[in-house]
Write a protein that binds this DNA or RNA. Structure first.
Lengths: 217, 217
DNA sequence: AAGTGGTCTAGACCACACC
DNA sequence: GTGTGGTCTAGACCACTTC
Protein backbone atom coordinates (compact mmCIF):
# COMPACT_ATOMS: atom_id res chain seq x y z
CA UNK A 1 0.00 0.00 0.00
CA UNK A 2 2.79 2.39 0.85
CA UNK A 3 4.46 1.71 -2.47
CA UNK A 4 1.25 2.44 -4.32
CA UNK A 5 0.43 5.60 -2.40
CA UNK A 6 3.99 6.89 -2.71
CA UNK A 7 3.90 6.08 -6.42
CA UNK A 8 6.87 3.74 -6.28
CA UNK A 9 4.55 1.34 -8.07
CA UNK A 10 2.60 3.32 -10.64
CA UNK A 11 -0.94 2.68 -11.86
CA UNK A 12 -0.81 -0.09 -14.44
CA UNK A 13 2.50 -1.50 -13.21
CA UNK A 14 2.81 -5.21 -12.73
CA UNK A 15 4.06 -6.05 -9.26
CA UNK A 16 6.07 -9.11 -8.19
CA UNK A 17 4.25 -12.37 -7.62
CA UNK A 18 3.31 -13.66 -4.20
CA UNK A 19 6.30 -15.96 -3.82
CA UNK A 20 8.79 -13.19 -4.55
CA UNK A 21 7.06 -10.73 -2.24
CA UNK A 22 6.99 -13.31 0.54
CA UNK A 23 10.72 -13.72 0.18
CA UNK A 24 11.32 -9.97 0.07
CA UNK A 25 9.24 -9.28 3.15
CA UNK A 26 10.44 -12.39 4.96
CA UNK A 27 6.99 -13.76 5.52
CA UNK A 28 4.85 -16.66 4.35
CA UNK A 29 3.08 -16.62 1.04
CA UNK A 30 -0.29 -16.83 2.79
CA UNK A 31 0.46 -13.56 4.51
CA UNK A 32 1.25 -11.86 1.23
CA UNK A 33 -1.91 -13.31 -0.22
CA UNK A 34 -3.97 -11.94 2.64
CA UNK A 35 -2.53 -8.46 2.20
CA UNK A 36 -2.92 -8.46 -1.55
CA UNK A 37 -6.46 -9.69 -1.36
CA UNK A 38 -7.32 -6.85 1.00
CA UNK A 39 -5.75 -4.30 -1.34
CA UNK A 40 -7.58 -5.80 -4.29
CA UNK A 41 -10.89 -5.55 -2.42
CA UNK A 42 -10.18 -1.90 -1.74
CA UNK A 43 -9.70 -1.44 -5.45
CA UNK A 44 -5.99 -0.60 -5.35
CA UNK A 45 -4.88 -3.77 -7.13
CA UNK A 46 -6.21 -5.87 -9.94
CA UNK A 47 -5.43 -9.54 -9.74
CA UNK A 48 -5.80 -12.27 -12.29
CA UNK A 49 -4.60 -15.81 -12.21
CA UNK A 50 -1.70 -16.47 -14.43
CA UNK A 51 -1.71 -12.85 -15.57
CA UNK A 52 -0.46 -11.63 -12.21
CA UNK A 53 -1.15 -8.55 -10.13
CA UNK A 54 -1.04 -4.95 -11.26
CA UNK A 55 -1.70 -1.60 -9.65
CA UNK A 56 -5.21 -0.53 -10.59
CA UNK A 57 -5.28 1.95 -13.44
CA UNK A 58 -8.35 3.71 -12.17
CA UNK A 59 -8.20 3.43 -8.45
CA UNK A 60 -11.98 3.25 -8.32
CA UNK A 61 -11.95 3.56 -4.61
CA UNK A 62 -15.09 1.97 -3.44
CA UNK A 63 -17.09 3.99 -1.01
CA UNK A 64 -19.20 1.89 1.30
CA UNK A 65 -22.57 3.32 2.05
CA UNK A 66 -24.33 2.07 5.09
CA UNK A 67 -28.02 1.68 4.56
CA UNK A 68 -29.33 2.43 8.00
CA UNK A 69 -32.68 2.08 9.64
CA UNK A 70 -34.21 5.54 9.71
CA UNK A 71 -34.81 5.45 13.43
CA UNK A 72 -31.13 4.84 14.08
CA UNK A 73 -30.06 7.45 11.56
CA UNK A 74 -32.18 10.07 13.29
CA UNK A 75 -31.17 9.02 16.77
CA UNK A 76 -27.50 9.03 15.85
CA UNK A 77 -27.82 12.70 15.05
CA UNK A 78 -29.15 13.23 18.53
CA UNK A 79 -32.75 13.81 17.56
CA UNK A 80 -35.88 12.16 18.81
CA UNK A 81 -37.42 9.86 16.24
CA UNK A 82 -41.05 9.08 15.74
CA UNK A 83 -43.09 8.17 12.76
CA UNK A 84 -46.69 8.28 11.80
CA UNK A 85 -48.51 6.03 9.38
CA UNK A 86 -50.51 8.11 6.92
CA UNK A 87 -52.09 5.26 5.03
CA UNK A 88 -52.16 1.52 5.29
CA UNK A 89 -54.12 -0.38 2.69
CA UNK A 90 -54.23 -3.78 1.09
CA UNK A 91 -54.87 -2.91 -2.48
CA UNK A 92 -53.93 -3.52 -6.07
CA UNK A 93 -50.61 -1.95 -7.02
CA UNK A 94 -50.25 0.45 -9.91
CA UNK A 95 -48.75 -1.11 -12.99
CA UNK A 96 -45.50 0.78 -12.49
CA UNK A 97 -44.95 -0.89 -9.12
CA UNK A 98 -46.08 -4.34 -10.20
CA UNK A 99 -43.93 -4.33 -13.29
CA UNK A 100 -40.83 -3.15 -11.51
CA UNK A 101 -41.25 -6.04 -9.09
CA UNK A 102 -42.10 -8.48 -11.84
CA UNK A 103 -45.45 -9.22 -10.19
CA UNK A 104 -48.93 -9.35 -11.60
CA UNK A 105 -50.97 -6.19 -10.97
CA UNK A 106 -54.12 -8.10 -10.01
CA UNK A 107 -52.81 -9.39 -6.68
CA UNK A 108 -53.22 -7.21 -3.62
CA UNK A 109 -50.17 -5.77 -1.96
CA UNK A 110 -49.71 -3.82 1.23
CA UNK A 111 -49.37 -0.11 0.63
CA UNK A 112 -47.92 1.94 3.48
CA UNK A 113 -47.26 5.65 3.42
CA UNK A 114 -45.64 7.13 6.46
CA UNK A 115 -43.82 10.17 7.68
CA UNK A 116 -40.73 10.05 9.87
CA UNK A 117 -39.97 12.91 12.22
CA UNK A 118 -36.75 14.13 13.77
CA UNK A 119 -37.44 16.21 16.86
CA UNK A 120 -40.96 16.74 15.52
CA UNK A 121 -39.76 18.11 12.21
CA UNK A 122 -40.69 16.11 9.14
CA UNK A 123 -37.61 14.20 8.09
CA UNK A 124 -38.60 11.56 5.58
CA UNK A 125 -41.69 10.64 3.61
CA UNK A 126 -41.87 6.96 2.82
CA UNK A 127 -44.08 5.32 0.22
CA UNK A 128 -43.84 1.55 0.35
CA UNK A 129 -45.39 -1.50 -1.29
CA UNK A 130 -44.94 -4.93 0.29
CA UNK A 131 -45.46 -8.26 -1.47
CA UNK A 132 -48.05 -9.90 0.79
CA UNK A 133 -47.73 -13.32 -0.77
CA UNK A 134 -44.11 -13.37 0.36
CA UNK A 135 -44.46 -11.59 3.71
CA UNK A 136 -47.97 -12.47 4.85
CA UNK A 137 -47.03 -12.02 8.49
CA UNK A 138 -46.78 -8.26 8.08
CA UNK A 139 -50.58 -8.10 7.96
CA UNK A 140 -50.64 -8.53 11.73
CA UNK A 141 -47.85 -6.08 12.52
CA UNK A 142 -48.64 -2.77 14.16
CA UNK A 143 -46.73 -0.53 11.81
CA UNK A 144 -47.34 2.46 14.02
CA UNK A 145 -45.23 0.79 16.70
CA UNK A 146 -42.39 -0.34 14.46
CA UNK A 147 -41.17 1.03 11.16
CA UNK A 148 -41.98 -1.30 8.27
CA UNK A 149 -38.37 -1.32 7.13
CA UNK A 150 -37.09 -2.16 10.58
CA UNK A 151 -39.61 -4.98 10.88
CA UNK A 152 -38.79 -6.36 7.45
CA UNK A 153 -35.06 -6.29 8.05
CA UNK A 154 -35.44 -8.21 11.27
CA UNK A 155 -38.11 -10.64 10.18
CA UNK A 156 -37.55 -11.46 6.55
CA UNK A 157 -34.63 -12.87 4.70
CA UNK A 158 -33.43 -10.18 2.32
CA UNK A 159 -30.72 -11.33 -0.01
CA UNK A 160 -30.59 -8.75 -2.74
CA UNK A 161 -31.29 -5.07 -3.03
CA UNK A 162 -31.34 -2.53 -5.74
CA UNK A 163 -30.88 1.08 -4.73
CA UNK A 164 -30.90 4.27 -6.67
CA UNK A 165 -30.34 7.83 -5.56
CA UNK A 166 -31.69 10.84 -7.34
CA UNK A 167 -33.01 14.34 -6.96
CA UNK A 168 -36.59 15.35 -7.55
CA UNK A 169 -38.71 18.44 -7.27
CA UNK A 170 -41.18 18.12 -4.42
CA UNK A 171 -44.73 17.47 -5.55
CA UNK A 172 -47.47 19.47 -3.92
CA UNK A 173 -48.30 16.53 -1.65
CA UNK A 174 -44.69 15.95 -0.67
CA UNK A 175 -44.18 19.63 -0.05
CA UNK A 176 -47.11 19.73 2.34
CA UNK A 177 -45.98 16.65 4.20
CA UNK A 178 -42.38 17.76 4.49
CA UNK A 179 -43.46 21.30 5.32
CA UNK A 180 -41.68 22.90 2.43
CA UNK A 181 -42.70 24.40 -0.86
CA UNK A 182 -43.64 22.72 -4.08
CA UNK A 183 -40.67 22.32 -6.41
CA UNK A 184 -38.07 22.29 -3.65
CA UNK A 185 -35.22 19.88 -4.45
CA UNK A 186 -35.65 16.62 -2.57
CA UNK A 187 -33.15 13.81 -2.16
CA UNK A 188 -34.79 10.55 -3.12
CA UNK A 189 -33.83 6.94 -2.55
CA UNK A 190 -35.64 4.22 -4.46
CA UNK A 191 -35.00 0.77 -3.15
CA UNK A 192 -36.26 -2.64 -4.21
CA UNK A 193 -35.47 -5.69 -2.14
CA UNK A 194 -35.65 -9.38 -2.92
CA UNK A 195 -35.44 -12.64 -1.07
CA UNK A 196 -33.65 -14.76 -3.62
CA UNK A 197 -35.67 -14.12 -6.77
CA UNK A 198 -38.87 -13.20 -4.96
CA UNK A 199 -39.51 -9.47 -4.68
CA UNK A 200 -40.29 -8.41 -1.13
CA UNK A 201 -40.74 -4.67 -1.08
CA UNK A 202 -40.28 -1.51 -3.06
CA UNK A 203 -39.98 1.84 -1.37
CA UNK A 204 -39.47 5.47 -2.26
CA UNK A 205 -37.87 7.62 0.41
CA UNK A 206 -38.17 11.39 0.01
CA UNK A 207 -35.97 13.28 2.44
CA UNK A 208 -36.45 16.71 3.88
CA UNK A 209 -34.79 19.51 1.87
CA UNK A 210 -31.14 19.93 2.79
CA UNK A 211 -30.65 16.25 3.60
CA UNK A 212 -27.18 14.99 2.77
CA UNK A 213 -26.02 11.44 2.56
CA UNK A 214 -22.43 11.18 3.61
CA UNK A 215 -19.60 8.71 3.26
CA UNK A 216 -15.82 8.47 3.34
CA UNK A 217 -13.28 6.54 1.38
CA UNK B 1 -24.51 -17.35 5.40
CA UNK B 2 -27.24 -19.85 4.63
CA UNK B 3 -28.10 -20.16 8.28
CA UNK B 4 -28.41 -16.41 8.62
CA UNK B 5 -30.45 -15.92 5.47
CA UNK B 6 -32.75 -18.84 6.32
CA UNK B 7 -33.11 -17.43 9.84
CA UNK B 8 -31.81 -20.56 11.53
CA UNK B 9 -29.51 -18.13 13.30
CA UNK B 10 -31.51 -15.03 14.15
CA UNK B 11 -30.29 -11.45 14.38
CA UNK B 12 -28.59 -10.99 17.72
CA UNK B 13 -27.89 -14.69 18.23
CA UNK B 14 -24.45 -15.75 19.36
CA UNK B 15 -23.01 -18.35 17.04
CA UNK B 16 -20.48 -21.10 17.92
CA UNK B 17 -16.83 -20.18 18.13
CA UNK B 18 -14.33 -20.86 15.38
CA UNK B 19 -13.00 -24.08 16.87
CA UNK B 20 -16.46 -25.62 17.19
CA UNK B 21 -17.47 -24.57 13.69
CA UNK B 22 -14.27 -25.99 12.27
CA UNK B 23 -15.08 -29.31 13.88
CA UNK B 24 -18.70 -29.22 12.70
CA UNK B 25 -17.79 -28.44 9.11
CA UNK B 26 -14.75 -30.71 9.13
CA UNK B 27 -12.33 -28.01 8.10
CA UNK B 28 -9.44 -26.08 9.58
CA UNK B 29 -9.97 -23.15 11.91
CA UNK B 30 -8.29 -20.82 9.44
CA UNK B 31 -10.95 -21.67 6.90
CA UNK B 32 -13.72 -20.86 9.33
CA UNK B 33 -11.93 -17.62 10.18
CA UNK B 34 -11.72 -16.67 6.54
CA UNK B 35 -15.43 -17.26 6.01
CA UNK B 36 -16.47 -15.43 9.16
CA UNK B 37 -14.26 -12.48 8.40
CA UNK B 38 -15.87 -12.19 4.97
CA UNK B 39 -19.35 -12.29 6.48
CA UNK B 40 -18.36 -9.69 9.06
CA UNK B 41 -17.06 -7.40 6.33
CA UNK B 42 -20.38 -7.73 4.54
CA UNK B 43 -22.06 -6.65 7.73
CA UNK B 44 -23.86 -9.91 8.45
CA UNK B 45 -21.84 -10.73 11.56
CA UNK B 46 -20.40 -8.75 14.42
CA UNK B 47 -17.23 -10.12 15.92
CA UNK B 48 -15.40 -9.21 19.08
CA UNK B 49 -12.53 -10.93 20.75
CA UNK B 50 -13.46 -12.81 23.84
CA UNK B 51 -17.09 -11.73 23.39
CA UNK B 52 -17.55 -13.98 20.39
CA UNK B 53 -19.50 -13.68 17.16
CA UNK B 54 -23.14 -12.76 16.78
CA UNK B 55 -25.50 -12.28 13.89
CA UNK B 56 -25.74 -8.55 13.23
CA UNK B 57 -28.83 -7.02 14.76
CA UNK B 58 -29.16 -4.39 12.10
CA UNK B 59 -27.92 -6.03 8.98
CA UNK B 60 -26.64 -2.66 7.84
CA UNK B 61 -25.92 -4.14 4.52
CA UNK B 62 -23.16 -2.07 3.15
CA UNK B 63 -23.67 -0.91 -0.37
CA UNK B 64 -20.42 -0.29 -2.17
CA UNK B 65 -20.49 2.72 -4.42
CA UNK B 66 -17.91 2.94 -7.08
CA UNK B 67 -16.63 6.45 -7.56
CA UNK B 68 -15.98 6.42 -11.25
CA UNK B 69 -14.19 8.74 -13.58
CA UNK B 70 -16.88 10.64 -15.45
CA UNK B 71 -15.48 9.74 -18.83
CA UNK B 72 -15.81 6.03 -18.05
CA UNK B 73 -19.25 6.46 -16.54
CA UNK B 74 -20.49 8.14 -19.70
CA UNK B 75 -18.77 5.71 -22.02
CA UNK B 76 -20.12 2.73 -20.11
CA UNK B 77 -23.62 3.92 -20.95
CA UNK B 78 -22.65 3.86 -24.57
CA UNK B 79 -22.44 7.61 -25.06
CA UNK B 80 -19.65 9.69 -26.46
CA UNK B 81 -17.89 11.70 -23.78
CA UNK B 82 -16.29 15.06 -24.13
CA UNK B 83 -15.77 17.92 -21.80
CA UNK B 84 -15.10 21.57 -22.12
CA UNK B 85 -13.26 23.81 -19.68
CA UNK B 86 -15.31 26.92 -18.97
CA UNK B 87 -12.84 28.61 -16.69
CA UNK B 88 -9.35 27.99 -15.50
CA UNK B 89 -7.85 30.47 -13.09
CA UNK B 90 -5.22 30.67 -10.41
CA UNK B 91 -6.93 32.78 -7.85
CA UNK B 92 -7.74 33.21 -4.18
CA UNK B 93 -10.42 30.82 -2.97
CA UNK B 94 -13.58 32.01 -1.27
CA UNK B 95 -13.55 31.60 2.48
CA UNK B 96 -16.05 28.74 2.29
CA UNK B 97 -13.67 26.69 0.17
CA UNK B 98 -10.54 27.56 2.12
CA UNK B 99 -12.10 26.82 5.47
CA UNK B 100 -13.54 23.49 4.42
CA UNK B 101 -10.05 22.49 3.29
CA UNK B 102 -8.42 23.92 6.37
CA UNK B 103 -6.30 26.21 4.19
CA UNK B 104 -5.60 29.90 4.41
CA UNK B 105 -7.68 31.99 2.00
CA UNK B 106 -4.75 34.19 0.95
CA UNK B 107 -2.94 31.51 -1.03
CA UNK B 108 -3.86 31.04 -4.66
CA UNK B 109 -5.54 27.86 -5.75
CA UNK B 110 -6.47 26.51 -9.14
CA UNK B 111 -10.10 27.02 -9.95
CA UNK B 112 -11.52 24.92 -12.79
CA UNK B 113 -15.08 24.95 -13.97
CA UNK B 114 -15.99 22.51 -16.69
CA UNK B 115 -18.91 20.90 -18.40
CA UNK B 116 -19.03 17.22 -19.32
CA UNK B 117 -21.13 16.08 -22.23
CA UNK B 118 -22.72 12.75 -23.10
CA UNK B 119 -23.48 12.50 -26.80
CA UNK B 120 -23.32 16.30 -26.91
CA UNK B 121 -25.91 16.71 -24.19
CA UNK B 122 -24.75 18.45 -21.02
CA UNK B 123 -24.23 15.75 -18.44
CA UNK B 124 -22.31 17.20 -15.53
CA UNK B 125 -21.19 20.61 -14.40
CA UNK B 126 -18.03 20.50 -12.34
CA UNK B 127 -16.69 23.25 -10.10
CA UNK B 128 -13.30 22.36 -8.67
CA UNK B 129 -10.58 23.93 -6.54
CA UNK B 130 -7.13 22.38 -6.44
CA UNK B 131 -4.50 23.00 -3.77
CA UNK B 132 -1.57 24.20 -5.89
CA UNK B 133 0.96 23.98 -3.09
CA UNK B 134 0.30 20.24 -2.97
CA UNK B 135 -0.19 19.55 -6.67
CA UNK B 136 1.96 22.15 -8.39
CA UNK B 137 2.39 19.95 -11.44
CA UNK B 138 -1.19 20.46 -12.47
CA UNK B 139 -0.29 23.99 -13.60
CA UNK B 140 1.26 22.52 -16.71
CA UNK B 141 -1.52 20.08 -17.53
CA UNK B 142 -3.79 20.66 -20.46
CA UNK B 143 -7.09 20.20 -18.71
CA UNK B 144 -8.95 20.36 -21.96
CA UNK B 145 -7.24 17.15 -23.00
CA UNK B 146 -7.72 15.26 -19.75
CA UNK B 147 -10.34 15.65 -17.06
CA UNK B 148 -8.87 17.14 -13.88
CA UNK B 149 -10.23 14.32 -11.80
CA UNK B 150 -8.78 11.69 -14.07
CA UNK B 151 -5.41 13.42 -14.00
CA UNK B 152 -5.43 13.78 -10.24
CA UNK B 153 -6.41 10.18 -9.65
CA UNK B 154 -3.56 8.97 -11.81
CA UNK B 155 -0.90 11.44 -10.75
CA UNK B 156 -1.43 12.22 -7.10
CA UNK B 157 -1.57 10.03 -4.07
CA UNK B 158 -5.08 10.30 -2.66
CA UNK B 159 -5.53 8.57 0.64
CA UNK B 160 -8.75 9.92 2.05
CA UNK B 161 -11.98 11.23 0.66
CA UNK B 162 -15.09 12.77 2.02
CA UNK B 163 -18.19 12.51 -0.14
CA UNK B 164 -21.67 13.81 0.30
CA UNK B 165 -24.71 13.44 -1.89
CA UNK B 166 -27.59 15.84 -1.91
CA UNK B 167 -30.28 17.44 -4.01
CA UNK B 168 -30.32 21.10 -4.97
CA UNK B 169 -32.42 23.41 -7.08
CA UNK B 170 -30.55 24.48 -10.19
CA UNK B 171 -29.29 28.03 -10.02
CA UNK B 172 -29.79 30.22 -13.04
CA UNK B 173 -26.21 29.60 -14.12
CA UNK B 174 -26.43 25.85 -13.64
CA UNK B 175 -29.73 25.74 -15.49
CA UNK B 176 -28.23 27.48 -18.48
CA UNK B 177 -25.19 25.24 -18.55
CA UNK B 178 -27.18 22.05 -18.14
CA UNK B 179 -29.82 23.27 -20.57
CA UNK B 180 -32.68 23.03 -18.14
CA UNK B 181 -34.74 25.49 -16.17
CA UNK B 182 -33.89 27.33 -13.00
CA UNK B 183 -35.11 25.48 -9.93
CA UNK B 184 -35.00 22.05 -11.53
CA UNK B 185 -33.89 19.39 -9.04
CA UNK B 186 -30.24 18.52 -9.51
CA UNK B 187 -28.30 15.63 -8.03
CA UNK B 188 -25.13 16.96 -6.42
CA UNK B 189 -21.97 15.28 -5.21
CA UNK B 190 -19.56 17.24 -3.03
CA UNK B 191 -16.21 15.59 -2.64
CA UNK B 192 -13.10 16.60 -0.78
CA UNK B 193 -9.92 14.60 -1.14
CA UNK B 194 -6.76 14.47 0.92
CA UNK B 195 -3.30 13.05 0.64
CA UNK B 196 -2.68 12.08 4.23
CA UNK B 197 -3.65 15.23 6.10
CA UNK B 198 -3.00 17.58 3.20
CA UNK B 199 -6.10 18.66 1.30
CA UNK B 200 -5.76 18.15 -2.44
CA UNK B 201 -9.00 19.13 -4.07
CA UNK B 202 -12.61 19.98 -3.43
CA UNK B 203 -15.21 19.60 -6.12
CA UNK B 204 -18.92 20.04 -6.61
CA UNK B 205 -20.52 17.90 -9.28
CA UNK B 206 -23.97 18.95 -10.49
CA UNK B 207 -25.59 16.30 -12.66
CA UNK B 208 -28.13 16.74 -15.39
CA UNK B 209 -31.75 16.47 -14.23
CA UNK B 210 -32.94 12.88 -14.08
CA UNK B 211 -29.51 11.53 -13.23
CA UNK B 212 -29.62 8.49 -10.98
CA UNK B 213 -26.80 6.96 -9.04
CA UNK B 214 -27.29 3.25 -8.77
CA UNK B 215 -25.96 0.44 -6.64
CA UNK B 216 -26.80 -3.05 -5.45
CA UNK B 217 -26.42 -4.90 -2.21
C1' DA C 1 -7.37 -15.39 34.43
C1' DA C 2 -9.20 -17.20 30.50
C1' DG C 3 -11.48 -17.44 26.26
C1' DT C 4 -12.20 -15.33 22.05
C1' DG C 5 -10.94 -13.81 17.54
C1' DG C 6 -6.52 -12.10 14.90
C1' DT C 7 -2.63 -13.39 12.72
C1' DC C 8 1.08 -15.95 10.95
C1' DT C 9 3.64 -20.15 9.13
C1' DA C 10 5.16 -23.89 5.97
C1' DG C 11 3.41 -26.70 3.05
C1' DA C 12 0.19 -28.58 -0.30
C1' DC C 13 -3.00 -28.97 -4.04
C1' DC C 14 -6.20 -26.72 -7.19
C1' DA C 15 -8.27 -23.82 -11.01
C1' DC C 16 -7.82 -20.81 -14.20
C1' DA C 17 -5.88 -18.28 -18.07
C1' DC C 18 -2.45 -17.55 -20.97
C1' DC C 19 1.09 -19.56 -23.77
C1' DG D 1 2.01 -27.03 -20.75
C1' DT D 2 2.87 -23.77 -17.12
C1' DG D 3 2.77 -20.01 -14.03
C1' DT D 4 -0.26 -17.39 -11.51
C1' DG D 5 -3.42 -16.52 -7.83
C1' DG D 6 -7.08 -19.21 -4.82
C1' DT D 7 -7.71 -22.09 -1.24
C1' DC D 8 -6.99 -25.15 2.45
C1' DT D 9 -4.47 -27.41 6.46
C1' DA D 10 -2.46 -28.15 11.11
C1' DG D 11 -0.33 -25.86 14.24
C1' DA D 12 1.27 -21.92 16.87
C1' DC D 13 1.39 -17.63 19.27
C1' DC D 14 -0.68 -13.09 20.09
C1' DA D 15 -3.95 -9.34 21.60
C1' DC D 16 -7.81 -7.93 23.23
C1' DT D 17 -11.82 -7.98 26.37
C1' DT D 18 -14.57 -9.62 29.25
C1' DC D 19 -15.13 -12.09 33.47
Amino acid sequence: MRRILERIWLPGDMIPNEIDLAEEFGCARATVNRAMRALAEEGLLERRRKAGTRVALNPIRKATLEIPITRLEVEQRGWAWRHSVLERAETLPPVSVASRLGLSDDVEMLHVRSLHYADNHPFLYEDRWVNLSEVAAIRDVNLQAIDANEWLVQNTPLTKGDISFSAANATKQEAELLQTSEGEAIFVIDRTTWNGDIPVTIVRLAYTPGYRMHTEI
